[in-house]
Design a protein around this nucleic acid. Sequence first.
DNA 1: AATGAATGAGGGTTCATTCAT
DNA 2: CATGAATGAACCCTCATTCAT
Lengths: 203, 203, 203, 203
Amino acid sequence: MDKKIESTEDKIIRAAIEIFSQKGYNGTTTKEIAVKAKIAEGTIFRYFPKKQDLLHGILVKAIEIMAPKIIGKGVAEIFDDNSDKSDREILIAFMKNRLEIVQQNFTLIKVVLNEAQYHPDIQELFFQKVLPPIKGIIDHFFMEGIKKGRFRQYHPSILTAMMVGTVGMSVLLQHNRHFVEGLSKEEIMEQMADVLLTGISKN
Amino acid sequence: MDKKIESTEDKIIRAAIEIFSQKGYNGTTTKEIAVKAKIAEGTIFRYFPKKQDLLHGILVKAIEIMAPKIIGKGVAEIFDDNSDKSDREILIAFMKNRLEIVQQNFTLIKVVLNEAQYHPDIQELFFQKVLPPIKGIIDHFFMEGIKKGRFRQYHPSILTAMMVGTVGMSVLLQHNRHFVEGLSKEEIMEQMADVLLTGISKN
Amino acid sequence: MDKKIESTEDKIIRAAIEIFSQKGYNGTTTKEIAVKAKIAEGTIFRYFPKKQDLLHGILVKAIEIMAPKIIGKGVAEIFDDNSDKSDREILIAFMKNRLEIVQQNFTLIKVVLNEAQYHPDIQELFFQKVLPPIKGIIDHFFMEGIKKGRFRQYHPSILTAMMVGTVGMSVLLQHNRHFVEGLSKEEIMEQMADVLLTGISKN
Amino acid sequence: MDKKIESTEDKIIRAAIEIFSQKGYNGTTTKEIAVKAKIAEGTIFRYFPKKQDLLHGILVKAIEIMAPKIIGKGVAEIFDDNSDKSDREILIAFMKNRLEIVQQNFTLIKVVLNEAQYHPDIQELFFQKVLPPIKGIIDHFFMEGIKKGRFRQYHPSILTAMMVGTVGMSVLLQHNRHFVEGLSKEEIMEQMADVLLTGISKN
DNA sequence: AATGAATGAGGGTTCATTCAT
DNA sequence: CATGAATGAACCCTCATTCAT
């Protein structure tokens, strides 16, 4: 009953995300998208007059889907629900939650990040609409810690960058079983959070 | 006088790397490469019978160029030349050196990493020829620190992953001036190394 | 009003046969075919993904068109309708009928025979699907004559080969007015049939 | 010692004939010819400025090689040396001799006949220089027979055509073992000659 | 004379886009 | 609205031909 009510536009977007993530934008034909979406090739162009427009549609979709998860519930939930937890537990919960979100929307994120490299308009949208709120929240998190004297005096954006880099790496590690052997996804994330936290914390 | 003695094959490879890094493999035409290399389009196919073969040529080039830098001089230089330095100074030197190498070969690395996503054979080569030696060296560095009791008991590969992620992020930061404002490349790298080191070190 | 209802596929096949017969497969461009068929070049590839496939399409067409003419009506008609005629009249009718069929489909046959030389798959199809039935019928005709004591004891396949060679030559003679001067198509065919018949007949 | 003294031009011609006969003129690259002739590709163009010129070279070669065999020795030899033989023996010897010549120069003849279809200048040369003498000789042979009252009153050119067609078919039969089973090359030729002779002879 | 690297026009083929149904 | 046949520009690639060595 989920598929039945999916609009034609959504079917197209979904198919496009999936194939773009596998073959890249330029490596994907509109025919392939039509087949995966189970519609006629011509139908795509009723919704997205140019193939390019599909990328914009995807980015809009990405913002729609991820914005609430990242901005809305995410932060409040973690910090409020865990107000009685230690810093370590909070950071780990925070990073695990991020990892979760990224992994759930992996193909979507992959497409956006990959194509942003080559499409200046996508890039611009990404740097103006997508990145700032995410960065803002994490920056804020670290700034609070610094202000409250629990974290050392680093530039918050650097800590944000490191956390993003760390979470990013841990995502990539999930896709490369040989890199770290013998540890579960959770354990990896925890050890990484530990290193970060120890490096950041005042004592 | 530099260009005069460059072989036709090298001219092609160089042009291909440059344009692939800007537009991606599938977004680049052999015509564009020919124009940039200032040769006839047909000449490309004397050296690389299929466009695909250009990617292999690039990967081979990448291995040729970077292998000595990463494996050879890099490690010995830093650790031997700095044997009287503190851990902090060594790690910073190490990471800065890495950053330098990555930045000097940024377009080349960008192409390889991007296309490895879509070309299984490139991916395989990368995971079998390129990644292992790099990972081995860094793993070794951290294992030594752990063995000598200076670093805590983390899984070395996790520390490697974090360092790579950190260096990777710092490269990206160079290309996004808005992310961290007010700090130089050096300062960013140093703060990051500091966080890592503090997180890792025993005391 | 004839052309209007011709399918795009048939238009392509027809144009291809015509140009292939004039310039050979390798001497013909898909562009030329498209122009002659009055369609866009790209359209050809909706029906025949590879240029090669055009040859198969033509061979299939050839079998479709000629099989009924050769196997079906041809034999029955001649032998049944002429049961009261002399051997000479039957053979002449038979050969004339064959000549007619070959001449009507001259370009088609020319293409198949020419390209069979260079395309093993076409060759195989020809020797397995096209030749056997034709040879079978003619062999049968001569075998009957031999069995009934009207023809001498030659190997039937040799007589078939001679008849085919003779009809083939007479086709070529139509295209070379200088070879036999002063005789009509009918007279040539009749004299040839006469020679054959006299050579074959018992008395 | 045969190859050593072969001129570069002859090496090219020989290689060209061989490959043209296998792949056709348009299906053959000058590179392939160069490789088979064991020379550099550029060398071909010193002798034959255009690829087309190779065909003329081949035709000239064909005339050079075959003219003496067909016109000169051939006829005299057979008729003089066999003056005490029966008509049947003479005709068989004649046809066998022709068959021999054709088979020895099969690739050469194949190329000329095939390409004459598509190259008007080759065609013209063939119909003006090659065909007439051959036709003339055979016509003469049959005319003599008719004049001397041994052969019936057919148009000589028709008999020539049939003989050529018959010899031609027998050549093709050599390349198709399945057509006539159980008979040797000699037996086939003899039976064919028998049919022709019986058909032609007066009693 | 011979070489073979370089050329570039042109070939087969792909694919985003249009449009009549 | 949806379809899919048709389009043709542009792509990758081939190959006859040129020319510096």
